[in-house]
């Protein structure tokens, strides 16, 4: 008991004198840096491994570590609309534009958000779906609004239902006290482009270390060739599709049309 008490005391003393960043180092690695999409792609899982490296200066963390893995997909612009009853018809009456917001957003943690730190700290570090920046066009200006805003909340809800936004407080599991794993599900509709993977290590509400890496989702093989043709040789692509339609129609008529 005395030994443990002594340790705590030393830890407290070290904390008081050491820089708030702490002495832990964070090393992460993802299972793949390039998600390849071929014609049978229906979604995949990205696995992230992380190791916490301690040295002699490392303080004991009696409350354990908090780990947050945030994956942000390529920026996109979206319009969120609200329907209202007008003259008996349900029509879109209000809309808000979200500009350059993540088209994919996954937040995985090893414990409930409230246990990771005080709310203002979570907001500052952009931890959790509601605390990520979702810029809206406000008149001629661009700004994020309060998390309670109904349209902002609806945007997160719709994206979550689509499987593109997710928040999992059990998404990070510790294999040993200093080794953890996070599994990031990527659905088939995951947007093409570059993704940012940010891993944060916290203890008692303080950020100890932060590690960033990038992955990309790209089309390959036939998917790539067709998409490239559609963008670069538009007329040829269009004419080829039209010819394909004629050929298919003719083939159908030749095969079945004998009467």
């Amino acid at each position: 008991m005395t030994r443990r008490g002594l340790q705590l005391l030393i830890a407290a003393a070290t904390l008081a004198t050491a820089t708030p960043a702490g002495a832990e180092r964070l090393i992460t690695s993802v299972s793949t840096y390039r998600v390849l999409i071929n014609s049978t792609f229906t979604g995949t899982e990205l696995v992230l491994f992380g190791a916490i490296e301690l040295d002699e200066n490392s303080a004991a963390r009696p409350n354990g570590y908090g780990v947050v893995v945030t994956v942000r997909g390529p920026a996109g612009s979206f319009t969120t609309r609200r329907k209202e009853r007008l003259l008996g018809l349900w029509v879109n009456t209000d809309s808000r534009q979200f500009v350059d917001v993540p088209s994919y957003l996954a937040v995985l943690t090893n414990r409930p958000l409230a246990e990771l730190g005080p709310p203002d700290q979570l907001r500052r570090l952009r931890i959790g779906l509601v605390n990520n920046t979702l810029t809206q066009r406000v008149g001629s200006d661009f700004a994020d609004v309060v998390p309670q805003d109904p349209i902002r909340a609806a945007f997160i809800r719709v994206k979550t239902n689509e499987g593109l936004f997710r928040e999992q407080t059990t998404g990070v599991t510790f294999l040993t006290p200093t080794l953890f794993r996070a599994t990031v599900p990527m659905p088939g509709i995951s947007p093409i482009g570059g993704y940012e993977v940010e891993t944060m290590l916290l203890a008692d509400g303080n950020l100890l270390a932060r590690e960033r890496t990038a992955i990309e989702v790209v089309k390959t093989g036939l998917e790539f060739s067709l998409a490239q043709a559609a963008h670069e040789d538009r007329l040829v692509y269009g004419l080829a599709t039209a010819l394909l339609a004629l050929a298919t129609g003719l083939a159908g008529s030749l095969l079945f049309g004998r009467d």
Partner: peptide, 16 residues
Amino acid sequence: IDLVTAPADPYSVITT
């Protein structure tokens, strides 16, 4: 019918 009945979610998101 779609026009006159209340939608399940009055909010919708489309890519701009």
